[in-house]
Each structure stands twice: as C-alpha cells, then as structure tokens.
Simulated assay, not measured.
Amino acid sequence: MTILVTGATGNIGRQVVEHLNKRGADVRALARDPSKANFPDGVSVVQGDFLDVDSLRNAMSGVSTLFLLNAVVPDEFTQALIALNVARSAGIERIVYLSVIHADVYVNVPHFAGKFSVERMIEQMDFKATILRPAYFIQNDLTIKDVITGYGVYPMPVGDKGLAMIDVRDIAEIAALELLRREQASEPLPLNRINLVGPETLTGTDIAAIWSDVLARQINYGGGDTQAFERNLKQFMPAWMAYDMRMMGERFLTDGMLPGAGDVERLTQLLGRPLRQYRDFASETVASA
C-alpha cells in the first residue's frame, strides 16, 4: 500500500519522504511542480495542489495512509478541509496530521485556530489519525541568525515562561515512524495526539546565553516588544502573516509553550535516542557560516 506525503518539497515533508523511503515504504510525494522535485530513487512524485480537487483525487487514488501538512497561508483551513474530504472519498482512513502544540489554548492566533479546527474535523469525520502537535521549530531561528551575529541580540519574543523548542529533524523522523505504525497495523488504530517538544524548556535569556557561549561573545535577549517584532517581520513577509506571528509571540510571553508530563520521555523512547538540543543547532549554524 501507499503513503502519500503532502508538503513533500518543504523542509519537514522532504525529510519525511526520505525517512519512509529508507525504511522501504511505498511513498508518493505530492508536488505542485514535479519537474522541480528531487527525491530519492523509488519515490513516486505526483502533481497536485490543495485547491485543485481533481489533482488531489488523482494523487490520493490507491493511497492507504496520508501525511497531511499545510503551510501557513490565508486559506489553510479550506485547503485542509478539501484534502480531508477527498481523502474520505478515496477511502483513506489512516492519517498523520501536523498541527501545533497548544492549538486549543492559543485561540486568538490565526494559524493555531485554523489547525485546531482541522483537528476537530478529523475527529468529527472519524478518521483514524495521529495528530502531531509540535512546539516552536528550532530552525525558525535561522531567519534571525544575522541579527544575532550582526547586532548581538536575540530578538524573538520568547519571554520568561519558556518554549520547548524542537528540531525539525526530530519532527520529521517521528512523523515517519507514526506513518509506518499506522500503515503497518492490521486494523486502523484509534486517534491519538502527541506533543512534539524538545528536551529543554528555554526562556529568551536562556537562548541568548547559549548563543553567547557558542559565539564566545555577549548576546543579549531583546525580544519582549511584540509591536517592534511585527514591524520587523513586515519587511520580508505579508502583513497578515507578520500580525499572526505577533499574536503568537504575545502568547509566548503570557503562556509559554510548555511540554506535558512525560512528553520528553515518550519521544525519547519513540526515537530510541535523545532529542536534539538547541545548543546543537546553534553550534551547527555557526560552524556552517
């Protein structure tokens, strides 16, 4: 049987495809432009777009398990709902959906609210799914490395509650393992949710201290001003997205992004190894500069 990976050309989706391929799964990768897709031998590539229903019907034909990953876009919920309806029509029961941690708490943050609505639709449509709820991606900080190294400031509004940041490489491997677990089960498995977190819960000051150690010079935390954060983001992303990120930052400050009891131990057991630390990412980023 076949596992369809959506978002397959993105950072996480591509790694999911590679993990599945290495483990001998029959993988089909969804791409808007297959001519630009570069996947390992044995991976089938199919053209498709979430808003092109006929292309989704074709992509999902003969598929047994679906990895649903939607980008943060204005019509994210519509795209996901179309995909779920087409999946049901195609007879697909087994799904792994990439949501976000605290989707039911950060209710005023647009892309969190959208993902929580998708979670509700998965339940209402009685899919047999794993809902993965990742915390903040460590690799998001690649977008601010020049600010850190050039100005000596860590600018993300992390606050003092802390974020259980997770490496995208761990996210992808866990997603692949869950897809295989569902694909290989003799019967569709019941719905479950897994928080995807890193091994540490770090404050803004903690992260600045890590960069200080790695760079061997003082890096200060300066990220508490969410208005300035939004203003800076608008220089390189649409205004709606910058505002969405600001709303998320404000919830970082008031609520944090904290793991649940046993989350770290569960993920460590699932991977069979320790979770990657933020310090590893910072060291790798500096070494590759």
Rank of each mutant, 00 (worst) to 15 (best):
V17Q: 02
D75L: 08
L81P: 05
P74F: 08
A83M: 14
S64N: 15
A25N: 08
N85H: 10
K36Y: 08
N108H: 11
L20H: 03
T2P: 00
A37G: 01
S64F: 02
A83V: 12
V5M: 10
P40R: 01
E93I: 12
R23V: 04
P34Y: 02
L30E: 03
A31G: 01
R28V: 06
N11R: 12
A31N: 03
N85M: 15
A37L: 04
P110L: 08
Q47G: 02
V86P: 11
R14F: 06
D52S: 10
I3M: 04
N11T: 09
T78R: 14
A8D: 07
V53M: 13
I92Y: 13
S64H: 14
V43H: 02
L56I: 12
H111M: 09
R32W: 07
L66K: 05
I12M: 09
K22Y: 01
R14T: 14
I12Y: 00
S55V: 09
S89V: 15
R57I: 08
Q79F: 14
S64K: 15
D104G: 02
G62C: 14
F112N: 06
R28T: 02
V96H: 04
Q15T: 11
L51N: 15
L20D: 03
D26W: 06
G42A: 09
V43Q: 03
T6K: 05
K36P: 07
F39I: 04
G7Y: 09
T78L: 15
A37N: 01
V45P: 01
A29P: 10
N38I: 01
P40L: 02
I95N: 02
V53H: 10
G13W: 02
A25M: 11
E76R: 03
L4K: 02
H19V: 13
N11Y: 00
A8C: 05
D75M: 13
S99I: 04
M60Y: 07
Q47I: 00
R28N: 13
V17N: 03
K22M: 07
G10Q: 00
S55E: 11
S99M: 07
A103V: 05
D104I: 08
T2A: 12
N70W: 01
L98A: 05
Y106W: 08
V27S: 03
G62W: 06
V43P: 03
A31I: 01
A90F: 12
V16A: 01
L98R: 00
S44E: 15
I101A: 13
G24Q: 09
E18G: 01
I101T: 08
V5H: 07
A87P: 06
R14W: 04
V43L: 05
N58R: 15
N85R: 15
P40I: 04
V46D: 08
L66T: 04
T78K: 14
V16T: 08
D52W: 10
L98K: 00
R94H: 11
V73S: 12
A71S: 15
A31H: 01
A37E: 00
A37F: 00
V109S: 04
F39E: 04
G62L: 05
V105N: 00
P110D: 02
G13D: 12
A29E: 09
R94F: 10
A90M: 12
F50W: 13
